[in-house]
Nucleic acid binder design. Structure first.
Lengths: 193, 193, 193, 193
DNA sequence: CACTAATCGAGACGGTACGTCTCGTCTTCGC
DNA sequence: GCGAAGACGAGACGTACCGTCTCGATTAGTG
């Protein structure tokens, strides 16, 4: 069906205008209220130009998000894994406190009924960041700071799972202090000593 | 505006037919594909009869879910909090492996752009269950099985956060074994001993 | 596919608003420039309400035309068939000089690629009028004013064919005088006497 | 605006391929379904190459038609104007029974909303043929076969008007027999003798 | 024989309207 | 007078073409 348009002929100006418009509308009106039609109008672009290059509004906004945040800068490595975990988790919490959090919630929501988007969310956004984290944690394991018998992938889930829990379920507000404390709980465990 | 319909006049048969139809459609076609129109048709009911009593399809399905699963039976208390946590977390994971998981994902997705629904999700479903858990963990704290300086609400987040992480982000499949191990990690911490 | 909407439930106000808007737009902007979307907007109506009851903009405009012109009043019968033919042909020519002519040209144009519309044009507009004419001419034949060996249907074609020729091909402007003369030519023939 | 492309640099192969493709598509899919895009694709040509030399798909197809039918061969002159009229009218009717009729209907349809095309239809196709007819009829008038007080242009309308009436309105199928008879009616008139 | 300029194939672009879909409200009729 | 049935206004969807535009890559006729 799709005649596979030639990316070389892509118009830079339009491409960027679409990303910019998408992000601005999402920030202004809320993710759910954004429509492809509105993005096209705001970007001064034909709808077909969006559909030619993206399968859905979600895909546009995901790329816009990546375009805006730029390449993931990596995780800190001060030698103290506890401090690094706390710092980075706080970074995530703070980022989620901005428009980014709202937009990300919308993307995750759409991904529940759009398997392709779910995959793109992972490959384009989540997994690269998690990969960095796993590397950092692997180093900590090697340095004897963390248990070797716990998969670092699981550690990442333990660290960020509660953040997403609050973000998506809204049980409690995202709270940097709580985030710092959580790292200590994770490292030392919930058993009394 | 809304003439505040008198709940006494509510038709039991229609009410139940709507809940049943909603759940069946959600299970068969997937949450996102269900429409109020389809529920009404499947229940042999006018659309207005649904809109009179519920604000959205999500509200119908949430009530249908609660209607189906019945009142929350509470958490186990064998005296061994580790075993209880593992058992219950596994129960959740198993439940999420059925239609319930798919439907729940849909409800959480809708809640991202529907504050009222988000509130209902908490009060009608999540908080009652979490309240039970906090009570159980309070008992464990009192029994000296868990640290007293960690809010039990946070403990619940640590336990279930990673489950929701996988459920909603799809990084890895929900896995009962991993769930059991996670309880041990949480209790003993990630530091080498 | 089409669930066959129930005409009894049709909204009178909307129906009339659509017909009025269609005709006004056609007169103002020209038949070809009218769009279903514009009719809907001008009538303060949803597009679906048009598509529910008509298959195309042409069908709307045809009905609007019939609604406006009202039932065909019939043909004159003064006893002098020549005078009657001239009068009526002139009536047609004059009508075609108004918006009606422009709209009718548009409908005939659309009918070239829309068999259903072509049929509707005949049954809803052309044939009723031609039927009246054939009856009038039959009477003239019976009165000995016209040849009995020429089908009256053919006579009608001879009378109006040239009108449509000018209307649709634009070779020459529609001209009442020429119309009158043509009746004489038809009746007496092109041979010198 | 238009930089007036230099016809000398025109690519013969492309020109012919466009005409051929246009006619083939019109015959195969019907005039209305043909698009400039499809002609370009079928001719292996860029869209701009069509728009450089023609203002619309109708103009392409009109030229293709003229290219295919070749120069108009003129009207017969056997000395018997009745026979000649019948022969030629039948020729037209027969031609209209082929793809040519369908395509011609499409062109006339488009001309209703395209004044330029309407003009081209006359100058490139209709008027040359009518001119020949008028000449032939002038000769018949001079020979005393036809009335001198009827403009030959009007005679042509009387002869072909009914043909177009049937072609464009679809009241009855185009019928060679009826065509022959019509010539007799026209010559001798509709009055009983 | 290179040079230069316009045409060429290709197809992306900003637009417009299409006909469909679903939403949440409003209207009608039958029980 | 309630409720099923479903028409309604609204408006986004994703598609199809329009006519214009921007690309190299031919392809002429000129110098």
């Amino acid at each position: 069906m799709a005649p596979a348009p030639n990316p070389d002929l892509r118009n830079r100006r339009s491409h960027q205008a679409i990303l910019d418009a998408a992000l601005e509308l999402a920030a202004r009106d809320g993710y759910a209220k954004v429509t492809v039609e509105a993005i096209a109008a705001a970007a001064g672009v034909g709808k077909q130009t969006i559909y030619r290059w993206w399968p859905s509004k979600a895909a546009v906004i995901l790329e816009a998000l990546n375009d805006r945040t730029g390449p993931f800068s990596g995780v800190p490595d001060t030698g103290d894994v506890a401090a690094d975990m706390a710092a980075a988790a706080q970074g995530v919490v703070e980022a989620f406190g901005t428009d980014l959090g709202t937009i990300w919630r919308g993307l995750v929501a759409d991904a529940q009924s759009d398997a392709r988007l779910a995959g793109d969310l992972l490959t384009d956004f989540l997994e690269p960041r998690n990969k960095c984290w796993q590397d950092r944690l692997d180093a900590a394991v090697a340095a004897g700071e963390l248990r070797a018998d716990v998969p670092t992938r699981t550690m990442v889930e333990l660290l960020f799972g509660p953040v997403y829990y609050r973000l998506l379920l809204g049980t409690d507000p995202l709270d940097p202090e709580n985030t710092t404390a959580r790292v200590e709980y994770l490292l030392n465990g919930l058993r009394p000593r």
